[in-house]
Amino acid sequence: MLVSVVSIQFGSAVGRTLFDDLGATGVVLLRVGISALVLALLVRPRLRSWPRAAWRAACLLGVSVAGLNLLSALAMRTVPLGVVVTVSFLGPLTVALVQTRRLLDLLWALLAGAGVALLWWHPGPSVPLGGLGLAALAGACGAGYILLTARVGGLVPGVGGLPVSLTVATLVALPFGATGASAVVSDPALLLGAGSVALLQTIFPYVLELLALRRIPTRVFGILASLNPAAAAIAGLLVLDQHLTSISLAALTLVTLASAGATASHAAAGSEPAARPRR
């Protein structure tokens, strides 16, 4: 699970290095497209047996996946990776918190809210409010991803819904990223870069998390997933040379603690923690 967290965030950082050549949305299009193709070959979903409700849920999930990735990429053009992941992580956290109405959940929500409030009130010169708004919208799509993933999982056996949803996400991203992605025609080496991002950010974590959930409780899984904002900050520093301000680091810490605390308390109460959105 720890390797998966690191892989996702370093994949995001590597993807950011391709923005100048492929554009933010072009990178998203190639990544989800390659991931859809590879997972379709690996999973081979039995589509003929799907009910209409499964198709509807899988298509809506694909729209959420596209929205999450497109909005995150657009935010990353102007906002450091660690900040984008911190703000967008509020979507999954909100889903987890609204599932119960205990006082402790309110305290976790206030802690996370305080972290994001720090970013909005003191964003710093390198963090425009417009970028923060895009990250927040990505978080809303992340919340939809969680709810729709649960819906698809209840309608489709195994993991057959994932390649279908990624295919839909590719179609949604196509009009936004086609122009940028076309750069691979004149420079095929860029396709290798996009493929590595697909491997690091989607395919590799998918396999690792599937193996992890067979070996560890969902409580532990959720707590480790809460390390994503911290891993994003480290990846942004090492790959992109993005130095976060003390305010950003404080906000990241508050959101991470709130997410880990909410996950642990929900597991103790007997409810399942929310999964984080696959980036």
Rank of each mutant, 00 (worst) to 15 (best):
A75S: 15
P205N: 12
H243G: 15
L134K: 12
P163I: 05
V83W: 00
R48Y: 10
S49C: 11
Y206Q: 13
P80C: 15
G195W: 04
A54F: 12
G236S: 13
L191S: 14
A183S: 14
L199Y: 06
L257N: 02
R151V: 02
V116E: 05
T100H: 09
H122T: 08
G62D: 00
E272N: 10
L70F: 02
R31H: 13
V168H: 00
H266T: 03
W55D: 14
G158Y: 01
R46A: 11
F221G: 11
A150P: 01
V168E: 00
L71C: 03
L90S: 08
L93I: 02
S12C: 09
A53I: 07
L111N: 05
Q99D: 14
G11W: 03
G131D: 08
S12M: 14
G193M: 00
T170I: 01
S196T: 11
R31F: 00
L18E: 07
A169N: 00
A138F: 09
T170A: 00
N228W: 08
G177C: 10
C59T: 14
R151T: 07
R101L: 08
E272F: 01
A54H: 12
G161T: 08
L227M: 10
I223K: 06
A135W: 10
W108V: 05
V79L: 01
V6K: 06
I234G: 03
H122K: 06
L118S: 09
V83K: 00
G67A: 14
M76G: 11
R48P: 07
L39K: 11
P163W: 04
L199F: 12
L162E: 01
P188R: 07
L37I: 15
L29V: 09
V3G: 09
R276K: 13
L147H: 07
A181P: 09
L81N: 11
T100Q: 13
D187E: 15
L210S: 10
V207Q: 14
L191C: 09
V152E: 02
V84L: 13
T170R: 00
L60A: 15
A40Y: 12
V14S: 03
T86W: 13
S165W: 05
D187R: 15
G131Y: 03
L238D: 01
